[in-house]
Design a protein around this nucleic acid. Structure first.
Length: 589
RNA sequence: CGGAGCGUAGCUCAGCCUGGCAGAGCACUUGGUUUGGGACCAAGACGUCGCAGGUUCAAAUCCUGUCGCUCCGACCA
């Protein structure tokens, strides 16, 4: 490819609407352009990189035995009604109407479609297991699209769905995908970690997210440096708070005391009260399936909504508003508590969910359900009627790892992949059933496995760049080599040499772009760095006079090489780099 | 959905407070000089100041509405 015959609109300045570095580089390097918020056009360099990732995904999925299909993006609402997600996923569903005013959905995912397919086509254990995948555009009405391709209204996803005869078989399918994902992200040059993920209301322990550590990530990951434990913060457990919960009990009776104007944990910890946060019981009020519930945590802990949802088996929950709370509890947020004697009337029957960290707590302080008052000397088993104990708190950095006993760390990360054991939720509702050897009917046991392809592209940039621009891993670079002749006059020795090298590299099966623009060298060098080609070959008069041209890896030093051996030197460099990323392995099978 | 900020040339932005000729840099066009890390000189072209309404002799500027973009929030009582 010649630079002048493609389209690479680079920018000197950062676009005003890009916040994070990968988004800025995506635009500056001429990979994408925004149509409007959350919708992007892929330009030639962006598209080439995207196709590289897709191809890696495809090769590894095929290798793992998955079968590629292509499903409609436009879907009928009735299968979503059938699965129950027409309601539960309504916030993210784009709906459109045809000329007859019939409603259609733009698919945010494809469980309903694939399960319908399998329901119609598979009826025997002899036809299982099967794993279907596709690489397709998904549509989601995101609450807030942001960070370029990271969270968009429309994005490309690889989604796979496995169908098995049993839990054990499904587990094997799951493991195959887990292994494939590990290989995929490694081949993309990404340092990704698999972490245990929240399984939501479905439960079970078979869910892992593949996370790329990055400060701009929207997820938080808890991990142990021993490598024995890593989990999404929504799921993470530990051996408990660093400061133990006070258990000592003086036998003192409950004592109400005035706390005018004190409505936060922090305020109560200051003068004149001096009650440390870990000696307080925080009382939250939630609306769970449209009924109020009290949630108790230690004052220095934070509720993990995913854990609450998991414990209660529903995701129909939200914090109650002050207007909903006051009439029932008789006080406003900041003075709330769960002391049995203070819960009058309707409040007395509210369920109380308490975090495990509060077990056995004594000498605690909590709100009195009377504005401007708190209780001290609270002993939880004596004073509070706990409906149910559960792990509800968010793990904090420094707590000890359940596996290794070492302190846990917390860092932000980008979720690029998710593997999930679904069970029979969809197969039951959409009748994906099979007959076993004895002629008995069972629902298929399903798994689903997603990779955000467009997000992965941006994650690569987020993880691999420097002050000059993108530093592509060879496997996903739009071109492997950029040849930069410092003069482009057709008959000049410089251009003629560049053309010869260009032709020879193409012949050698290397993806190469020739920067034939009639621009100053500085401009071309800057652009080559910005777009991030892994290897640059510069041809200039000075080095040519010595019979040399220059090879420079992105981010590395310039190496002069004799013209005769230049092509071989490039070939060797590329082959070594390809081998490091495990490229070509799939083809060799 | 709540809050905040921003919409002015293709891009990045100034001008708005305090109403009075539409601006700069980059990019673009032409000519010249340059040519190993985003050149220089000269001349030029480029605008529905997001849109609609209002106030005013006069609106990019003030007011109202609306649309769009960005950020924060939508647990931490």
């Amino acid at each position: 490819m010649r630079w002048t015959s493609t389209f690479i609109p680079t920018l000197k300045e950062n676009p005003a609407d890009a916040e994070i570095i990968s988004h800025q580089l995506l635009v500056r390097a001429g990979l994408v352009r925004k149509l409007t918020g959350g919708l992007y056009t892929f330009l030639p360099m962006g598209l080439r990189a995207l196709r590289k990732i897709e191809q890696i995904v495809r090769e590894e999925m095929n290798r793992a035995g998955a079968i590629e299909v292509f499903m409609p993006a436009l879907q009928p609402p009735d299968i979503w009604q059938q699965s129950g997600r027409y309601v539960s996923a309504r916030e993210v569903l784009y709906k459109v109407r045809d000329r007859a005013n019939k409603e259609w959905l733009l698919g945010p995912t494809h469980e309903e479609v694939i399960t319908t397919l399998v329901a119609g086509e598979i009826s025997s254990y002899r036809q299982l297991p099967r794993n279907f995948y596709q690489i397709q555009t998904k549509f989601r009405d995101e609450i807030r699209p942001r960070f370029g391709l990271m969270r968009a209204k429309e994005f490309i996803m690889k989604d796979a769905y496995s169908f098995d005869v049993s839990d054990e078989a499904a587990q094997a399918s799951y493991q195959k995908m887990y292994d494939a994902y590990t290989r995929i992200f490694r081949r993309c040059g990404l340092r990704a970690m698999a972490v245990e993920a929240d399984t939501g209301v479905i439960g079970g322990k078979f869910s892992h997210e593949f996370m790329v550590p990055a400060a701009s990530g929207e997820n938080e990951v808890v991990y142990c440096e021993s490598g024995q434990y890593a989990a999404n913060i929504e799921k993470a457990a530990s051996r408990g708070p660093v400061i133990p919960t006070p258990q000592a009990d003086s036998g003192a009776a409950l004592e109400k005391f005035p706390t005018p104007g004190v409505v936060t944990i922090e305020a109560l910890s200051r003068a004149p009260h001096h009650v440390a946060p870990h000696q307080q019981i925080k009382t939250l009020v939630y609306v769970v399936e449209s009924k109020l519930a009290l949630v108790l945590l230690r004052g220095d802990d934070q509720l993990n909504e995913a854990k609450l949802a998991g414990a209660l088996g529903t995701n129909q929950l939200r914090p109650a508003t002050a207007d909903e709370i006051a009439p029932v509890l008789g006080a406003h947020p900041g003075s709330l508590g769960a002391i049995a004697d203070t819960l009058k009337g309707e409040a007395a029957s509210l369920p109380v969910y308490a975090d495990e960290a509060l077990r056995g707590a004594g000498g605690m302080t909590t709100g009195a359900n009377e504005d401007g008052h708190h209780f001290r000397h609270v002993r939880i088993e004596r004073d509070i009627r706990v409906t149910r104990w559960a792990d509800l708190r968010t793990v904090q950095a420094g707590e000890l790892c359940v596996a290794s006993g070492q302190p846990l760390k917390v860092r932000r990360a980008i979720e690029v992949g998710h593997v999930f054991k679904l069970g029979t939720k969809y197969s039951e509702k959409l009748n994906a059933l099979y007959l076993d050897e004895s002629g008995t009917q069972h629902p298929c046991v399903m798994g689903c496995y997603g990779i955000g392809v467009t997000r992965t592209l941006q994650a690569v940039i987020e993880q691999s760049h420097d002050k000059d621009g993108i530093v592509w891993p060879l496997s996903v670079a739009p071109f492997e080599v950029c040849i930069t002749p410092l003069s482009v006059a057709p008959n000049s020795p410089v251009m003629q040499c560049a053309e010869r090298v260009y032709a020879a590299l193409i012949e050698a099966g290397i993806e190469v772009i020739l920067d034939d623009r009639d621009d100053r060298p500085g401009v071309k060098f800057k652009d080559a760095d910005l777009v991030g080609f892994p290897l640059r070959v510069a041809v200039g008069e000075k080095s040519l006079a010595r019979g040399e041209i220059e090879i420079k890896p992105r981010g590395g030093a310039v190496n002069p090489v004799k013209i005769e051996s230049a092509v071989e030197a490039v070939r060797k460099w590329i082959e070594t780099a390809r081998a490091e990323l495990g490229m070509g392995m799939a083809q060799s099978r």
